[in-house]
Write a protein that binds this DNA or RNA. Structure first.
Lengths: 205, 205
DNA sequence: ATCCTACAGTTGACAGTGTCATCTGAGCGC
DNA sequence: GCGCTCAGATGACACTGTCAACTGTAGGAT
């Protein structure tokens, strides 16, 4: 037998897994609450016991992904076998790799939180904190902190912010352009990896 | 009195204007064919006489926006009052400016075409060309050509591709991060404009 | 002038969707 | 044991994109 809390936690986990899987397979349009519920073994109304609405569910998925990304960068950063520059490359590749392997999820990471926070933040100020949509922002923050630490190991503390912002935005842009297929053309005669090389060369040279 | 062709062209124009307006105001979710039709003075079924489906309508909106962007960069590039570096700044600001002023449209520019082309290109190969979804890609191509020419004026022909790709992806990343609100935090202590400065300094210095 | 055709636009219908009010039933404190 | 709480089920509603069938008129053919 299982306690009620355990059952509820398992359902919530199953809902998140189902949403993540559907998002990866077919984008946000494919994430329907009915299908999410079905894959989690519940019906369409059940998600509303765990998330305010569909956007909250997707925001929770984004939060988990940010957490994974932050953990990964932390693991890279504390790997004694890598040099500082190799760690930087690992961090950049991590972000771009998500864009490449899971474009829908990647888009969610940078789109949903911003879209939500603009409106929901005001909403939370009125209704009081609910803890949910903040989670994505905090997780993204943690990723940025890890990334900043990696950059600091390469260019030093005082230049970390300046170069970190440039590196992060550039990596984000590379991922986005690659995702939209505008880097694959022979017009630019380059690749994401080559651009990362150039980027790293700029801050180390 | 108006001819039938004139009437149809006017309706198509009104549909595009309505879709553009709705997109700017409330994002893709707010663009409903019923509301688009209502604002254009027709009913919900009318758009299907001009566009295959909702995605085609949005792709047409994206194509028009790419055209405007390309025209703007061309105007900047051929402005005799500006230096080469000032032209580069103008081109970068144009892209970032769209991201700032019309985030939903900006997202459409880089998201929809890539998402569609991946699947639709195969579809067109079977059903024969329809001319519509290609328009967005061609317009985006024209923008990139203009941008490439601006970059060539600064760094020379042979380095234009290499630096052009880096500048374009970086600008895209800056726009995206600013849009998602992740540049506004005091963590980075920088701004989109400041990053553009750094970027230009890197390729000119 | 009359018929005919092409076609822009209308209308009714259908399958899905997110969301909510209401109901049900089982875990758990008393 | 009783009763409360809450996870989940269910019915309903408004709204969406999409298509088949229909209507009316511009404009060429006779």
């Amino acid at each position: 037998m299982v306690t009620r809390a355990e059952s509820a936690a398992a359902t919530r986990r199953a809902l998140l897994d189902a949403a993540t899987s559907l998002l990866a397979a077919g984008g946000p349009e494919a994430v329907t609450l009915r299908e999410v519920g079905a894959r989690a073994g519940v019906t369409r109304g059940a998600p509303y016991r765990h998330f305010a609405d569909k956007d909250s569910l997707l925001t929770a998925v984004a939060a988990e992904s940010w957490e994974r990304l932050a953990d990964h960068v932390r693991a890279v950063r504390t790997d004694p076998a890598r040099s500082a520059v190799e760690k930087l490359r690992g961090a950049l590749d991590a972000l771009i790799g998500v864009g490449r392997a899971q474009p829908h999820l990647y888009q969610l990471l940078f789109w949903q939180p911003g879209h939500l926070n603009r409106l929901e933040r005001l909403h939370r100020q009125v209704c009081g904190p609910e803890g949910d949509p903040q989670a994505a922002s905090r997780a993204a923050d943690r990723f940025q902190d890890e990334f900043l630490a990696v950059v600091a190991d390469v260019v030093g503390e005082e230049d970390a912010r300046r170069y970190g912002a440039l590196l992060l935005t550039s990596a984000h842009g590379i991922a986005g352009m690659e995702h939209s297929g505008q880097l694959g053309t022979d017009k630019w005669q380059t690749s994401a990896d080559s651009l990362v090389d150039t980027l790293i060369g700029m801050v180390t040279g």
